[in-house]
Design a protein around this nucleic acid. Sequence first.
RNA 1: GCGCCCGUAGCUCAAUUGGAUAGAGUAUCUGACUUCGAAUCAGAGGGUUAUGGGUUCGAGUCCCGUCGGGCGUACCA
Length: 550
Amino acid sequence: MVKLKIYKKIISVLDDLGFEYNDSFSIELPNNKKFGDYSSNVAMVNSKNSKMNPRKLAETMKKRLEKNDIFSEVTIAGPGFLNFKISHRLFQKALYDIEKQKEHYGRTDYGKGKKILIEFISANPTGPLNIVSARAASYGDTLYRIMKYTGYQPMREFYINDAGNQVDILAESLELRYREKLGESIGEFPLDAYHGDYLKDLAQELVDAEGSKLIHFSEKGRLSKLKNFALTRMHEIQTNSLDKFGVKIDSWISEKTLRKQGIVEEVMSYLTEANVTYEKDEAIWFESSKIGDEKDRVLMKADGTFTYFVPDIGYHITKFQRGFEKLIDVLGPDHHGYIARLKASIEALKYDSSKLDIVILQQVNLFENGEQVKMSKRSGKFITMDELIADVGKDAARYFFISRKSSSHLNFDLELARKKSAENPVYYIQYAYARISSILKKAKKEKIKIGKISLSVLEGLNNDDEIEIIKKMLELPNLLNSISESLEPSRLATYVYELAAEFHKYYQKYSIIDSENIELSKSRLAFITIIQRVIKICLNLMAISTPEKM
RNA sequence: GCGCCCGUAGCUCAAUUGGAUAGAGUAUCUGACUUCGAAUCAGAGGGUUAUGGGUUCGAGUCCCGUCGGGCGUACCA
């Protein structure tokens, strides 16, 4: 709000100056308070347009800007920054504006109702969700919440790869465990089978439900039964983990179902029609190298079956057909080689591949006792999402993952997460929230009532520390919009941490409740009520809880 | 070899997406509870942002090279 006012003033001055100006300058919080409340690079950006050097232009603008009631001071610094000091009165009004928006503060219509599809996790249904999926879940879900808050119409989708080799191997692995439970000797467990203990549990469930009945089925019938059973249970297990993690999936898409609906044939015919396929070595290839990929890719193998790529192309076409204006795929680092061919296929079919944003979440390196643990689903050596939640809690786990930029490889030290969970920054933020609750409770006990917060109450907030916190809170709407644009929800984690830190400092320095000065107490109580609400808005967007007591 | 990503304090990470003197936590050291919650706060030390160039008013951020690390480079998914 304050920034917008400054922006308008600058624009009106530029209009007066009468040259063709560039309006894409910025208005920022300078990182050093001595430069004032806000600063703008407008003079540097428009130096060429005005045919003046930046400082000269800044001088000219300063003179015109000074005759204005919103600036208490305008100065020029460095290469030509215009620095503004804003009247406290304006900040108090802006704070009142935040107050009036209550728990909707920060909500915008920035996204203009655009339909967005966020596909994330999409883990194979061959085992429980692991720590990598947990990162994707935190990321995708938080992004979803923020986009929704900023006026988009996002949807969370999970693509289930329930067709293909890996599912056959799953069925075979389960069969071995099943026989094992029935007392058969299965010898050495095959290397390429799924080794995790979860299959032993599933086998036990089968034995409990069916006894040894399945042994007498035909092999085909048995494997099919085992496969369906495993897929159903895996889906339940994964859904359950996500549920515990606070993540709801709006739409599950099954590869098997897509195949049944003939998507493979459809894609093949489209691609053939588009004249981008050829036959070689008894296989059918896609000429992706002509559309930006490094080499051509196989669509149909020599044995007549199709690669995973084909239904995936079809799947992406359905995303376009369902009317989404923007597609976000959240993938793991081992999929970066996949981007070019996917985009190539979209181009080949005449869809707009620039609508597809692929976010690669870098890998999670797991450490235990100072050593890196190599994770692999086949070997059964991995930390499940459930274990993670049980160890460090949903809130800490979510915050940990969200707070890292998607592009950073992150190290996850299990020992540290378990042992030092109380030192996790998420507690620092929650503590600020709980602390405010506690102060408000005390005020109530002392019969200091704030009631409905009015502008005149907020006028009691006059010191620099209070103004700093107001400025910080004013940043939220722009921040959220910018996160929706840059797809980096990590910035919200940083933001709310900083806000909590400013509150803790403020608390330490000033008494909120001062029985000698009831008026001031009321102002400050109103103030921390608003701070608390902003913290809550942020934590809600990350699906992190806001305990009143800790 | 080729392609993509990463390299910031001892360690884990930030840095308003190109802004001014690169910041937090942790670890080390020093202070602050008879008090609205010490899961907190104040302070000290810790940096040639891997490295060499370039682009411009201005670079941790963009471009090129080099050196390290990860991943990919399947008729697996």
